[in-house]
Design a protein around this nucleic acid. Structure first.
Length: 589
DNA sequence: GCCTCATCGA
């Protein structure tokens, strides 16, 4: 049953009766707290205070709102409290005390239950029940809206409930905070956290975990750690999920050693949760694989076996991916076989990982074969599968087969993202099949996918390669008409073409245009201009430009030096060429 | 119940 707080006029009688019960419960609770404090002095003092604060927050003060499930909440908190201490210390006498306390609490709860049952529900209940049903419906709606990312509607319903003094439960609040974080509204999420302190319910560990994860996701470890310390300050004890989020964030930043230290801390503090420890080990194993530390990664795999942790499909996928990174396809296959043997069926990640490593290794036919196998095994290829295949096939020169998979996607009702179309357009264009490139562009528009700057750059590149400079320029105009801004690549392509044709004025016109558009010319832009000067025999301008480039603080490769050196050689100015060679050798010193 | 791990990446 979802807990809903009700404060309607009809419920006033009930509220008064239950308030009296709360006073009884409060005194029982205080007695229990006192006894626990006496017996569990070894336990963490902060934790006790925090828990007491948590209980106080919910059960003391003016009860102008009442939890319909409050006895259950109290029971739960009592149980949490017992288990928390009994985990740390399992000595016999304390066990007896806990049993006695448990019995006391149970007795009190039974009394409360009978008090509530003795209330004559007839005069007040019908309306209250229907109200509660409405509120439960509202809660379901809020959760659904959050899952769909409709946070505006969710929050307005939340505000409506709060206005009526109906406080949705903690899980619903967590849905709201999670929803806000997922759409990037972290400030609003933190605002809601503050609201929870003022108006309830008190944030749980999951509430904080959501925020910690959101900040980690934005690569803002500082803010994540800040939330983590706020959590401790407010008396909420981090759980293994919190640590796993932090271990993962450290791994993502490449700080695998720090992640390992944090993992060791988890191992020391908590020995029991196999499932979560498997997750911690998987995160670290992945982190070590991705940073190239094969041996350390495999240590965690060994550790998983040694501790007999129940291995899941994710752990296998990490290992398979790890061997893929080191191009050990045979070993990756071995682990796929092991999965089958252990009754763990490869999932979409396993197959995609395998297909990806085969494509990277140029084994595209085998990748296509695996695509067939996965379908037969009941794992439907997804947009990632097709993206890997299309890109892999194009890279290895099989644009026709890539096009076949593009159409297979359409048949499977998956609308390919622009990147897939662009890859195929680019590769048709590169093999000189301009017609096909343009027809794929039209097909793309036909299924409702709008060309983006990459599409146009691929087409412009192709037109330039075919020597159609005018068409290339009209594509640039078309981009502007369609609301797309040409980027650095667009300008470099057109500028390079102008330079190749020796049209230095056009090249500088484009150069000025890109500056006006707020784009920063890069080393390719300058190299093209330098090449143009050399082509036109304007050596002093080329020399000046090289000096200018060196003063810009750009990372310069050997190309501009090489162009000018070749020109010197052609001009039989070997001294100048040699001097430039020396300058190039010395450029980083 | 809400929160933790894996595939791609022009």
């Amino acid at each position: 049953m979802q807990s809903v707080l009700i404060a309607s006029e009809e419920s006033q009688i009930l509220i008064r009766i239950i308030n009296n019960s709360f006073q009884t419960l409060d005194s029982i609770k205080n007695r229990i707290s006192h006894t626990i404090d006496l017996f569990c002095s070894k336990a963490n003092d902060n934790l006790i205070d925090a828990r007491r604060f948590q209980c106080g927050h919910s059960f003391s003060g003016q009860h102008d709102t009442v939890t319909s499930d409050s006895e259950n909440q109290f029971k739960l908190r009592g149980e949490e409290r017992f288990s928390e201490f009994s985990d740390g210390d399992k000595q016999e006498p304390e066990g007896a005390v806990f049993s006695a306390l448990d019995a006391m609490l149970k007795g009190s709860l039974d009394r409360l239950k009978s008090m509530r049952e003795s209330i004559s529900w007839d005069h007040i209940s019908n309306k209250s029940f229907s109200m509660e049903a409405n509120y439960n419906q509202d809660i379901t709606t809020i959760r659904a809206l959050c899952s769909e990312g409709k946070l505006g509607a969710a929050l307005s319903l939340w505000a409506k409930m709060m206005k009526k003094c109906v406080v949705p439960d903690i899980i619903t609040h967590n849905y709201l905070i999670n929803g806000l974080c997922k759409i990037g509204h972290l400030e609003k999420a933190e605002w809601l956290l503050e609201e929870m302190f003022c108006r309830g319910p008190f944030p749980s560990c999951a509430t904080y975990n959501i925020l910690v994860k959101a900040y980690c996701g934005l690569n803002n470890l500082d803010s994540a750690l800040n939330i983590f310390s706020t959590m401790a300050y407010n008396g909420v004890t981090p759980n293994i999920v919190t640590y796993n989020i932090l271990v993962h964030a450290l791994c993502k930043k490449g700080l695998v050693e720090d992640a390992r230290k944090l993992f060791d801390k988890i191992l020391c503090e908590d020995q029991d949760q196999d499932k979560s420890h498997l997750i911690s080990s998987t995160i670290l194993m992945d982190g070590f694989f991705k940073t190239g530390h094969m041996t350390q990664a495999l240590t965690y795999w060994g550790e998983i076996s040694r501790r007999n942790l129940p291995v899941d499909v994710v752990a296998y996928n990490v290992v398979i991916h790890g061997f893929g990174l080191s191009r050990d396809i045979a070993i990756a296959y071995k682990y796929v076989c092991e999965m089958f043997k252990n009754g763990i069926l490869p999932d979409i990640f396993s197959y995609n990982t395998l297909i990806s490593m085969l494509c990277k290794d140029g084994r595209t036919s085998e990748a296509c074969y695996v695509h067939g196998v996965m379908s037969k095994m009941g794992v439907t290829p997804d947009k990632v599968t097709y993206k890997i295949l299309v890109q892999g096939l194009c890279t290895h020169g099989d644009v026709i087969k890539a096009n076949y998979f593009l159409h297979l996607m359409l048949e499977s009702s998956i609308v390919p993202k622009p990147v897939i179309w662009n890859t195929i357009i680019d590769h048709y264009a590169r093999c000189g099949n301009m017609q096909k490139a343009l027809s794929i562009r039209d097909e793309m528009i036909g299924v409702g996918v709008l060309p983006n700057v990459f599409t146009y750059n691929a087409l412009i590149h192709a037109q330039i390669q075919s020597g159609n400079i005018i068409e290339a320029h009209s594509l640039k105009e078309e981009m502007l008409l369609n609301g797309l801004s040409p980027d650095l690549v667009t300008y470099n392509l057109l500028l390079g073409a102008a330079c190749y044709l020796g049209k230095i004025h056009l090249a500088f016109q484009l150069y000025n245009e890109m500056l006006k558009a707020g784009l920063y010319p890069d080393i390719i832009t300058y190299t093209e201009l330098l090449k143009c000067y050399c082509l036109l025999g304007k050596i002093s301008e080329a020399e000046d430009l090289l000096v200018k480039i060196q003063g810009l603080g750009l990372i310069i490769d050997h190309v501009p030096f090489q162009i000018l050196m070749k020109k010197y050689c052609k001009m039989k100015e070997l001294d100048k060429a040699y001097k430039l060679y020396e300058q190039w050798l010395m450029r980083d010193k």
